[in-house]
Write a protein that binds this DNA or RNA. Structure first.
Length: 279
DNA sequence: AAATCGGGGCA
DNA sequence: TGCCCAGATTT
């Protein structure tokens, strides 16, 4: 994969979002608001929020009723209360500075795997495995050849996406996210404008709809069938990469389980990068 | 894994 | 109505 294509596209087409140039606290507020709420609806509320409470300490001194009111119509107001509680913790335990360490971020209420990685990348400019719905959909299409990603990322998906991160991991996260949000959209993607259209696996496959793959377990098949598919593929090929195996089955978590059991049973072995039949 | 968030907006 | 949205948490 040529990562530079997306990085160049990002330089030319990125939106001028206010949280691209702000404090770590500003980034953290944006990430809370953007959890399941579209960018355009967050914009005005975010600007007003940072004028009212420029730092975590400022928010920690507010009343709960003020916080709920300022959240406006963003939805899921429990996010506002988690941000409020996180602000109090940051003010009390972190000297009013958003913590840099991933493990510290994860202790804050409302900061899950995605948000911790996003703050690492967007607030501190450090490389992190950022997997939001936009990025996951982009890779599902270009690499895996399916329309939609699975409901939640598996260990194998994390590993494969981690291996794609180039030197500037923070820019990579922003660029792929913007790409998914503006071009590789969930509905009506702009494939004709996509710089990756010639190598997109989903396009090559004829844009098959994958709602059934995503939502129906029966369509995928049993764990036993998954193991059989892997073994048969390894009989026909000397060795296969994880990418190749995932393409074959499309259900990452099931592949992951099947590979573990096959290794435990001594049927296959791995070098870390590829798999082959055991002697 | 699946439901829930005492959600909201748009086609 | 159904789908989508820079997810997190609980059971």
């Amino acid at each position: 994969m040529n990562q530079q294509v997306v990085l160049d596209w990002f330089d030319q087409n990125k939106r001028d979002l206010p949280w691209r140039n702000t404090t770590p606290w500003g980034v953290m507020v944006s990430e809370f608001m953007l959890q399941q709420t579209p960018v355009n609806r967050v914009l005005p509320t975010w600007s007003q929020w940072l004028v009212q409470w420029p730092t975590a300490l400022d928010l920690s001194l507010a009343k709960k009723s003020e916080v709920i009111t300022a959240w406006g119509r963003l939805g899921y107001p429990r996010r506002a209360l988690r941000l409020y509680e996180s602000a109090r913790i940051i003010a009390r335990d972190f000297n009013n500075q958003v913590p840099r360490a991933l493990e510290d971020l994860r202790t804050l209420p409302g900061v899950g795997e995605y948000t911790a990685a996003a703050i690492t990348a967007f607030a501190f400019g450090e490389s992190a495995l950022v997997l939001d719905v936009n990025i996951r959909r982009l890779f599902a299409r270009v690499i895996d050849g399916v329309e939609h990603p699975t409901p939640s990322p598996s260990q194998i998906e994390r590993k494969l996406r981690f291996e794609l991160i180039p030197a500037d991991g923070a820019k990579w996260a922003a660029a792929t996210m913007e790409f998914g949000a503006l071009l590789c959209t969930s509905k009506n993607p702009s494939c004709e404008e996509c710089p990756w259209q010639s190598q997109c696996a989903w396009r090559k496959a004829g844009y098959p709809p994958t709602d059934q793959i995503r939502k129906s377990q029966e369509w995928i098949g049993t764990d036993r069938q998954c193991r059989g598919t892997i073994v048969q593929a390894l009989r026909e090929n000397e060795q296969l990469s994880l990418t190749a195996l995932v393409k074959m089955w499309h259900n990452n978590s099931q592949i992951e389980k099947a590979l573990k059991t096959l290794i435990a049973d001594g049927l296959i072995e791995t070098t870390g990068k590829s798999y082959r039949l055991a002697d």
